[in-house]
Design a protein around this nucleic acid. Structure first.
Length: 263
DNA sequence: TGTGATGTTGAATG
DNA sequence: GCATTCAACATCAC
């Protein structure tokens, strides 16, 4: 779930539940997802603090504390948040649990353990050091075009590179390629400016729509590839069969009949 | 029961 | 020094 719109939905959830109340305790049930800090230091760094605000950049969610430090939540493939009071509602794969003064808990659930949580002195320094790109919702067309110059890899790989654009993941990248009728394995520098502009605008419209729907997939239009991703199925526009292949190292769905390859 | 999965990373290669 | 590719990571669900 966690690409830009999904992480944004989690930000809204976090903001609606966990802000502005004192953290009474922190339970680290599995320290595997803690990065660069041990469970004890993480717990003692948070108890008594409150989350005052959140900031999302791409797929990274920063929760700022009273003391100006930030907890960084990255959801990996399967990270989720759950706010609950009754321990019977504890999520099955809870790895970290924050307990608040209202008696509720915020559980960080993650079956696959690809998520990562850190305690940062400065989120700005972290973003800088990591060279995390501009959020897809804030990128301008001019910067997008400038970034694409001289790129010799696939358009899909380019869209997925968080150093260039923060927030696009595997599924939205496929959707952008489908809607723009461009084969995901097309080489970036073989695409015309008009096509790159189309990719940019389509990326923005897809992300905006997904944000508006709070990343609820059942509300995505039926003419999107989204809910039809299945090898051999007929594409929503009935232009051909959906094919699956490894592109840019990721499982990719596309329609060869509809999406032209430029190489 | 083997296979694949919404992500990132570091090493290897170009 | 960059850009790109690829395997590895951990575990569960189908």
């Amino acid at each position: 779930m966690p690409e830009l719109p999904e992480v944004h939905a989690k930000k809204r959830y976090f903001d609606a539940t966990a802000l502005k109340q004192k953290i009474q305790s922190v339970e680290v049930l599995d320290d595997h997802i803690l990065k660069d800090i041990d469970a004890e230091a993480f717990e003692s760094g948070l108890v008594g603090q409150s989350f005052v605000s959140t900031y999302r950049r791409g797929k990274y969610l920063f929760a700022d504390l009273d003391n100006e430090k930030s907890v960084l939540l990255h959801f990996g493939m399967t990270g989720r948040l759950k706010y609950y009071s009754d321990m019977e509602d504890q999520p099955k794969y809870e790895r970290i649990r924050f307990a608040f003064e209202d008696g509720f808990h915020l559980g960080f659930d993650c079956p696959r353990k690809f998520a990562r949580i850190r305690l940062l002195d400065s989120k700005e320094e972290y973003i800088e050091a990591k060279q995390l790109g501009t959020d897809a919702t804030e990128l301008t067309k001019a910067v997008f075009l400038a970034l694409s110059k001289g790129k010799r890899g696939s358009i899909k790989g380019f869209l997925l590179n968080q150093k260039y654009i923060a927030g696009i993941g595997n599924l939205y990248a496929d959707e952008i390629c489908y809607q723009t009728r461009i084969h995901p394995n097309s080489t970036v520098d073989q695409l015309k400016d008009s096509q790159l502009k189309d990719i940019f605008e389509t990326m923005r419209s897809i992300i905006d729509f997904a944000l508006d729907k709070n990343a609820t997939y059942s509300e995505y239009p039926d003419d999107w590839l989204w809910n039809h991703r299945e090898e051999g199925a007929t594409s929503p526009d009935e232009s051909g069969e959906i094919e699956q292949a490894q592109i840019a190292g990721r499982s990719t769905y596309f329609v060869p009949n509809r999406q032209k390859l430029y190489r």
